[in-house]
């Protein structure tokens, strides 16, 4: 699988109100890779994600999956939204099964994969609970399980932990990191949290705001290991400091 974003521009509005949100953005992801886009609020991160998901069309440039242009949303690009997007009338298990049912998979396969993916996200015990009976972190894990169960080629994560408090956030980061190591999923993560991006992704692109454009790309080749150790390792701290300075420079340039 190869997802490629090639010189993509996106503007909203017409005439005088026309506003350029993304300016000539290019990057790519191959199977098994974990790529992150980092940028401050309003830098067009969600817009980029929606373009990849096929929920919006680029104003210029091309987005392709294995050479085929993206024409609309499809199950090859699974998405996890920042805000809780579970179906409130379905239980956790029914939510996980939802995509497979849309694709009309046989009943037995749906059941097997539902319990498998609930186990993957550690929520087998919560299978029969409704979303409102789950904590924020549990809800996001169900959303991730639901996206994974539809077997996407690439998982699109738009600030999946943005609404969670710090502690749960860190444990969710550990969960996602472990999941990536175990299952070898391919993921595009969007976040405004530099630390999160550096810990989870192999490659990090920094997005400058107004208009959104990639100003820096780094390989986050941190030694493999536990996130808790990684967080305080010298390599990680040095890289984070360097990129944080870069991000501050972007905001400073706007006189903020």
């Amino acid at each position: 699988m190869h997802l490629s974003v090639d010189s993509v521009c996106k503007s909203f509005g017409e005439g005088k109100a026309r506003k350029l949100v993304l300016d000539t953005v290019s990057f790519s992801i191959s199977s098994g890779e974990f790529v992150a886009l980092v940028g401050s609020s309003g830098s067009g991160k969600s817009t980029m994600m929606r373009l990849v998901a096929g929920l919006e069309r680029p104003s210029a440039g091309r987005i392709t999956v294995d050479g085929v242009p993206v024409k609309g949303p499809g199950s090859d690009r699974g998405m996890v939204f920042q805000k809780y997007s579970l179906y409130p009338w379905l239980t956790a298990a029914q939510n996980v099964a939802f995509g497979m049912r849309l694709q009309r998979l046989p009943q037995r396969e749906v059941q097997e994969r539902t319990s498998y993916f609930l186990e993957v996200v550690g929520l087998s015990d919560a299978a029969r609970r409704l979303p409102r009976e789950l904590s924020g972190g549990m809800q996001q894990r169900v959303a991730i399980a639901r996206a994974l169960a539809a077997e996407p080629k690439v998982l699109l994560l738009d600030e999946p932990f943005g609404a969670l408090d710090l502690q749960i956030r860190e444990s969710m980061q550990e969960f996602l990191h472990g999941l990536w190591q175990r299952t070898g999923l391919t993921a595009l993560l969007i976040t405004h949290d530099l630390e999160e991006a550096l810990l989870l992704a192999q490659r990090v692109h920094i997005l400058a705001p107004r208009p959104g454009r990639i100003v820096r790309s780094v390989e986050a080749d941190l030694p493999p290991g536990e996130l808790a150790h990684l967080r305080i390792s010298p390599e990680f701290l040095a890289l984070r400091e360097e990129l944080a300075a870069c991000l501050r420079g972007l905001d400073g340039g706007l006189g903020l």
């Binding site: 096929g54 499809g74 995509g99």
Partner: peptide
């Protein structure tokens, strides 16, 4: 209806008709 719910169904491979009936 929260548009995330509709868009989630679309990214899970749902058709417009399925969005109508299932979401």
């Amino acid at each position: 209806v929260p548009h995330e719910l509709v868009e989630t169904a679309l990214t899970l491979g749902g058709s417009r008709a399925q969005v109508l009936t299932r979401v």
